[in-house]
Amino acid sequence: MTLLVSIFLAFLTIGLVSFGGGYAMLPLFERIVVLDNAWLSMERFVDMIAISQVTPGPIAINSATFIGYQTVGVLGAAVATLGVVLIPVTLVLSVAHFDRSFQQSRIVRRVLVGLRPALVGLIMASVFSVATSAIIDWKSVVILGVLLLMLVRVKAHPMVVIVLSGLLGMVVYS
């Protein structure tokens, strides 16, 4: 029961400060889920990001469901998912209700000018810590180079690249 409550509170917090959505919220996930509570190992955390990419839906929902399930089971999945959407949805509904004033608000505009570049910093920091756990030897550096080339030069679809990287991993590491 206490675990359920702490999962709910953790995801409520993530929902409150997850500006920018997607990858920008991963450092906070990592902090709370991997470092503070050890609900997942860093490797599992990265696996989870990959799974979020090949299953439909927003990464925040996928992660909350996954982590909730891994820690408590189906009930945990439901509680974590509820937690992560509760505050954003409440905020959206209040803006939708009162409208106008928000978009033109000078305060909101000025805060966002500072926040947008910070999201780049958050993503890059996350890339760094994901890379630290994913790059294990020189072979993985070569694979990473191949994947980057496929994405940039060949413009391969991310899902294709993810599946291919898994097959490469099976060939190289088993």
Partner: peptide
Amino acid sequence: LFEAFFKGVRLSVVALMFLAGWKMF
């Protein structure tokens, strides 16, 4: 075998996140 698969997959996560960050940068 599963673990080997994910060792590869983790690298594509690095690539995808890096490119997303670079585009925003």
